[in-house]
Simulated assay, not measured.
Amino acid sequence: MSSEERVQDPRALVFGQAAEEYDTGRPGYAPELVDEVLAYASLDGTTALEMGAGTGKASVLFAERNARLLCVEPDPQMAEVLRRNTAGHPRVSVEVSGFEEWQRGDRRFGLFLAATCWHWFDPARRWDLVHAALLPGGAVALLWNPHGVLDPDLHAELGEIDRRYGVPSSPHATLAADYGDRAGHWADGEEDPSGWPQAQCRQDGRFTALRSLRHGAQVHYDTERYLSMLTSISSYRVLPAEQRERALAETGRLLDARGGGIGMLHLTDLFLARRR
């Protein structure tokens, strides 16, 4: 797939249509792993670069720890919410651009951060672009927050709704018990760009000190918050509006009938590496 084809992927262009739902409904990341990133990176006053920052789910956590952070986000509507969420942090700045088109100039950074967006970057270029953006010894931190449904029966019923309405993927597509016990287990064996990056990074050879870490916790979403999160998911956003609304309404009725929400295993998986 060419870079042009990836830029035109409709799933990558729909988040701004639901920027507020994304901000209120999407989960964040484990603060403990943010501390791990900063300890690993040892920024010592250098600036961190966050690419694909969204509405600031990760950005705010780093800003609260006084990191100097440049956030780059391709969608102007998402960037508007990002600016609002980081307005109280003067060490944070925001630029609107895609990764491949971004004009870095002669700037280089002590940390490259990407949270649940690595799969949107061109796999043929992303390691080159990361390497070019980092100072020697600079760190790479890639974050994901996969979910798993705790209740097997509810998982099966939700899967039936998804199949009926043609929803290809969703946060409830995986049963919590199916996750392995290590970071990135959910991506084992995948060849698509969303797979765990450790093998590609090791093969690249320009990075060292590779580490993988995981934090897990059980969380409960009430029906309203869970539907808000689903509204921001790309696989729902690309559905015809009427089909999407019917799928969400039926999902909401099921969750209300099953106690008014859904229990999930919420993971934060972290991959770390350092430019040689």
Rank of each mutant, 00 (worst) to 15 (best):
G137A: 14
L82F: 00
R108D: 04
A156C: 02
V130R: 05
F121P: 03
Q103H: 08
E101M: 07
W118N: 01
E73G: 07
E80L: 09
H147T: 08
L82K: 02
A87D: 03
A141R: 06
D75K: 05
R91H: 12
A133M: 11
G88A: 03
A124E: 13
H119Y: 07
A87L: 10
R107L: 09
V81R: 15
A79K: 02
L143I: 11
T86Q: 07
A156G: 00
D106C: 06
F121Q: 14
F99R: 05
A156W: 03
G148H: 10
D151R: 04
L111C: 05
A114W: 09
A139T: 04
W144M: 10
S97R: 06
V149N: 12
C71P: 15
P74M: 15
L82H: 06
W120E: 13
G148K: 09
R91S: 11
W102G: 08
F112K: 03
F112Q: 02
L111K: 07
G148Q: 05
V72G: 07
L150N: 00
F109G: 04
F112N: 03
P146H: 05
A114D: 09
A139G: 14
R104N: 05
L142H: 13
G137D: 10
A141S: 03
D75Q: 00
T86W: 00
G148V: 09
D153Q: 12
F109Y: 15
R125M: 06
T116N: 15
R126Q: 12
P136A: 15
M78Q: 13
P74R: 04
Q77H: 11
G98V: 01
F121D: 01
R126F: 03
W102C: 05
D151M: 03
R84F: 02
C71L: 05
G98Q: 09
R104L: 12
D128Y: 06
G88S: 06
E73Q: 12
D106L: 13
L111R: 00
A156H: 08
L69F: 05
P146K: 03
G148W: 07
R104I: 07
C71I: 08
V130P: 07
G148S: 07
N145M: 05
A124G: 12
E100G: 15
G105P: 08
L70Q: 08
W144D: 14
G98W: 06
G110M: 10
A133P: 13
P146C: 10
W118Y: 09
R83W: 02
L113A: 09
F121W: 10
T86D: 02
A115R: 00
R91A: 12
G138S: 04
V81H: 08
Q77E: 12
Q77T: 11
V96R: 01
N85S: 06
R91L: 13
R91D: 09
A115Y: 06
A133K: 09
A132S: 13
G98E: 07
E73P: 15
Q103N: 10
L134E: 13
A124P: 02
S93P: 01
A141T: 04
D106H: 15
R104Y: 12
L129C: 02
L69N: 04
C117L: 04
W120K: 15
P74E: 12
W102F: 14
W120P: 02
A87W: 04
H119L: 07
S97H: 14
